[in-house]
């Protein structure tokens, strides 16, 4: 018998559940299905189309028309695997660069006097609330051939010819470091802030110099923050679309951009879907590693 309590519980669970099923899982299944279909000059532009009115023979006919052709195609055209590799390389490089910029910043924040810290944290978070697009765009004016950076360097006499930065991978690195810096700084700061100051005193008491105490105590103890921050930068960077589109050049190959163009310009939905499926497969590994790191952290805290 269903009492009112169970009814309410059922409603509470099923409303968000059904929403996510319909608007997250089902679309995803559709992507997967279309990745196994063939391109066609029809609306929608792929075949086979599932026809529920045909009954069971329709289902089997539909299933037998699905194949891995698009995935085979991805391996034959080197555009795709170069795009995957180049995305990986750009994501790794930018993550390392973000760490190099972010760690000293987080370390400085953690060492700052107590009364400054809320303000410093707010200063790191504030850009996050500001439009992502605007922040990426702001670099266009700086990095352009006649941009502020070149004007400044030429004016100072440091260089005689303007640097070409915009529309290169360098601009993409800068864009990623800039937009994802808060994601790196905050977890590292959290780890450093928890660090017990007396540990450093103990290390120095036992004969460490301040430098070696930093490498032997501070860095290992902030490792969970470094790992979390790196994943938080790496994962979105891998599928990034806006930054390479605005700051990168025609030679900048990133899988998010390829996917968008495959879909937008070539209207090849099956291939776009296959690209998406593979991108997701690549992302699953770092995501699982990240989850495991978080899990370990939670267990360590208990």
């Amino acid at each position: 018998m269903w009492g009112p309590y169970l009814m309410r519980r059922f409603a509470l669970i099923s409303i968000p559940y059904l929403w996510l099923l319909a608007l997250f899982l089902v679309p995803f299944v559709i992507v997967f299905k279309i990745s196994l279909s063939d391109i066609a000059l029809s609306i929608p532009p792929y075949t086979p189309q599932f026809d529920p009115s045909a009954g069971w023979p329709g289902v089997t006919a539909f299933l037998s028309d699905l194949d891995l052709e698009n995935f085979v195609f991805l391996t034959t055209d080197d555009l795709y695997w170069r795009a995957y590799l180049s995305s990986l390389q750009i994501a790794v490089t930018s993550t390392v660069l973000t760490l190099l910029v972010g760690y000293p910043l987080a370390y400085g924040m953690a060492n700052a006097p107590d009364r400054w810290r809320p303000t410093l944290i707010m200063l790191v978070i504030l850009p996050f609330w500001t439009s992502f697009l605007i922040r990426v765009y702001s670099w266009k004016g700086i990095l352009a051939g006649s941009g502020y950076l070149n004007q400044f360097l030429l004016g100072m006499g440091v260089i005689s010819d303007p640097l070409t930065i915009l529309n290169t991978n360098t601009a993409v690195y800068i864009g990623i470091v800039y937009t994802y810096l808060p994601f790196m700084v905050l977890p590292i700061y959290a780890a450093l802030e928890r660090l017990d100051g007396s540990l450093l005193e103990a290390a120095e008491d036992l004969g460490c110099s301040r430098k070696s105490a930093f490498w032997l105590v501070t860095v290992p103890l902030s490792k969970p923050g470094i790992i979390a921050g790196s994943f938080l930068v790496f994962i979105p960077a891998l599928g990034e679309f806006v930054i390479p589109d605005l700051l990168g050049g025609s030679k900048t190959l990133m899988i998010g951009k390829v996917l968008f163009e495959e879909f937008d310009k070539n209207r090849d939905w099956p291939v776009a879907s296959a690209v998406a499926v593979i991108l997701l497969l690549i992302l699953i590994i770092p995501i699982i590693l990240f989850q495991r790191n978080e899990q370990k952290q939670r267990e360590a805290e208990q």
Partner: peptide
């Protein structure tokens, strides 16, 4: 005991300059 060193001060200055300079330039040039 935490110590706020010159190195810390420099990295804070540079870090926040990096975060805020592009936006500031954009605002000025508007």
């Amino acid at each position: 005991m935490r110590r706020f060193t010159w190195f810390n001060a420099t990295s804070l200055t540079l870090g926040f300059a990096f975060l805020y300079l592009p936006i500031t330039l954009l605002v000025i040039y508007s």
